[in-house]
Each structure stands twice: as C-alpha cells, then as structure tokens.
Lab assay of single mutants.
Amino acid sequence: NITNLCPFDEVFNATRFASVYAWNRKRISNCVADYSVLYNFAPFFAFKCYGVSPTKLNDLCFTNVYADSFVIRGNEVSQIAPGQTGNIADYNYKLPDDFTGCVIAWNSNKLDSKVGGNYNYLYRLFRKSNLKPFERDISTEIYQAGNKPCNGVAGFNCYFPLRSYGFRPTYGVGHQPYRVVVLSFELLHAPATVCGPKKST
C-alpha cells in the first residue's frame, strides 16, 4: 500500500531547467500520482495528452512514469508532439509516433530571460542525422557541412553544433522561453508502482 505522493513538484518547480539538447529525465516510481494538482495549476500554456485522457489519469496505474524537462522557445512547443519535424524534434528531443503521455508547457519569461540576454539555454542546430525517439545527444563535436574534414576547428563550413537562445524579456511570445515537462507513461508486464489516488488503496 503506497502512500507517499509522487515528487512532481520537484520537477515542475525546479529552480533551473535543462537546455533542450541535454534534456533532463527523472524516473518516478513507487508513489501516488495526483495529476489533478498539475491539471489545476493555472499558468499552463499547453497540457496535451496522447493515448490517454488527462482527466482519467487519476484512475490509472503505470509501471513507471518518466518526467523529461527542458526549455525551448514558445514557437517550438508545437514540435513536442508525435510525428513532428523541425530543429527541436529532429536534433534535440524526439517523441515516438506511438507516444503515451502528456506534454505540459508554460511561459517562463520572468524566470529564464535576462536584460542583455540569458545565454545559458542551448539547443542543437546541426546534426548529421535525426534523433531516434528519446535519444539524447550531448556531443559538442564540430559539425562538418562541406567535404573538408574540420579536425575539431570551427570555421568555413565547420560549425559548433550548439546555439544559444539568448532570451531577453522584451522578445515577442514566440521567442520567449517556455518550460516543458513531458510525462511518459510506461506500461510493462510488471507490477504497477505509480497509481492515481483512487487506485492506491
């Protein structure tokens, strides 16, 4: 009989979020998941679920829940969905086509923008091939755009693969920082350890 609540607040209220190319993952297990707390949290810009209804989450049990978190621009949030393409979905964070879970995003301009620009948040701009679902690539190898080998030196046709967002408070909404948490639900042939409040007695 599990009684402790799942530590969703640790994920959602973290002081610093990860850059999207180096997205953070927390495994959540052996706890009671009260999703209504999240669902009623006012400032969400997006709360979209795939393969599961957000209002039914509290009735369900899962083997594991993974909480992935990172920061992207407002106009990139739409790429955090199954079957998407674009710089983020291709080179930074890719969801599987059969994704079961929820994508939760909110504007973090007050936290993550600075006058003069916040350059701490990076994304991958160049990559030889697209990421596989949930693949994480933190390499900083110089990207070779031409035929000539770069030998690890940036220059003509040789690019550092990461780019900084440089968030400023005055940017338009599409270019403002958004914090994103992706909850993915794993249902294995194993005992369920993460259940909603109704199922955990």
Rank of each mutant, 00 (worst) to 15 (best):
N118T: 10
F41D: 07
T100F: 12
F41Q: 11
P82Y: 00
R136F: 03
S53Q: 12
D112P: 03
V194P: 12
Y178E: 02
K199Q: 14
V11S: 02
T193F: 08
P54L: 15
S113A: 14
V20E: 04
P169D: 10
R73C: 07
G196C: 08
T193P: 10
A145D: 11
L131K: 02
D137G: 01
T55R: 11
N58E: 11
W23R: 00
Y91V: 05
L60A: 08
C31A: 06
F167H: 04
I104T: 01
Y159V: 12
V77R: 05
L187S: 15
F41W: 13
V71C: 04
N1E: 10
L57M: 07
K199S: 15
N58A: 11
L188H: 13
L187H: 10
Q144K: 10
S78P: 12
T85I: 08
F160W: 13
T55L: 12
Y66E: 05
I88G: 03
V194G: 12
G152F: 07
C158A: 06
I104N: 00
Q79C: 02
A81M: 04
V115A: 14
L125A: 15
N64H: 13
V180C: 07
R25H: 05
W23C: 04
C158V: 04
N87P: 15
Q79T: 03
I72P: 02
K148M: 11
R163Q: 14
F8G: 03
G101W: 00
Q144I: 06
A42E: 09
G116I: 08
E141F: 07
Y123C: 06
A81S: 06
T15E: 11
A42Y: 08
L57R: 03
L125T: 15
P169Q: 09
R25N: 03
C158P: 06
G146F: 06
S29G: 09
I142S: 08
G152N: 13
Y50I: 02
P177N: 03
L95S: 00
S113N: 09
C49P: 00
D98F: 05
G74Y: 04
S19W: 00
R25Y: 00
L162V: 08
I28D: 01
A14W: 00
S19K: 01
I142M: 14
V181A: 02
F12I: 05
A14Q: 14
R168I: 09
N147V: 12
A192E: 12
F44A: 10
G146Q: 08
N4V: 09
V103L: 02
C6W: 04
R136A: 06
N151Q: 13
P169W: 03
A105P: 00
K110D: 14
G155P: 09
S200C: 12
F185P: 00
L60V: 10
N64A: 15
E76I: 00
T201M: 14
N24Q: 14
V20D: 04
K199E: 13
N58C: 06
T100V: 15
T201V: 14
S108W: 01
K128N: 12
G117T: 09
T85D: 07
V65T: 05
G146W: 06
K56A: 13
Q79D: 04
V20T: 04
F45M: 14
G155S: 11
S53T: 11
P7F: 06
P54M: 14
Q144F: 05
N30D: 10
Y159D: 12
G101S: 00
Y35D: 06
L183E: 00
L183M: 06
I88S: 03
Y171F: 13
K199M: 13
H189T: 12
E76A: 02
N109P: 03
V52G: 02
R73D: 08
V11W: 06
D98V: 06
Y121H: 11
C61H: 11
V180P: 00
N4H: 11
F45C: 13
R73W: 03
N147F: 11
T140D: 12
Y91F: 12
Y143S: 08
P149I: 11
I2E: 13
P149F: 10
D98W: 05
F47W: 15
Y93M: 01
Y171P: 10
Y21R: 03
Y143F: 14
N24R: 15
F8V: 04
N30P: 06
P169F: 05
V20Y: 01
Q84I: 06
V194Y: 10
Y171M: 15
V194E: 11
N151H: 12
N118P: 07
P43G: 07
D9V: 13
A67W: 05
L162M: 08
Y21F: 10
N24M: 05
G172K: 14
D97A: 10
C6H: 05
A67Q: 01
T193A: 11
L183P: 00
F70L: 01
C150E: 06
G83D: 05
Q176A: 06
P43F: 06
Q84P: 02
F126R: 14
P191G: 14
V11G: 02
N40K: 15
T85R: 14
R25V: 01
P54A: 14
V173L: 14
Y159G: 11
N157S: 12
G174P: 09
F41G: 08
R136C: 06
Y121S: 06
F185S: 00
V153N: 14
D9P: 07
D59P: 03
K128T: 12
I28V: 06
T193H: 11
R179C: 05
F134T: 06
S164K: 11
K26G: 01
F134W: 08
R179T: 04
G51S: 04
K132N: 10
W106C: 04
K148Q: 13
G155C: 07
G152C: 07
E76P: 01
N118S: 12
S69C: 04
W106N: 04
Y119Q: 14
N120F: 07
W23Y: 07
G74M: 06
P133M: 02
L183F: 05
C150T: 06
I2D: 13
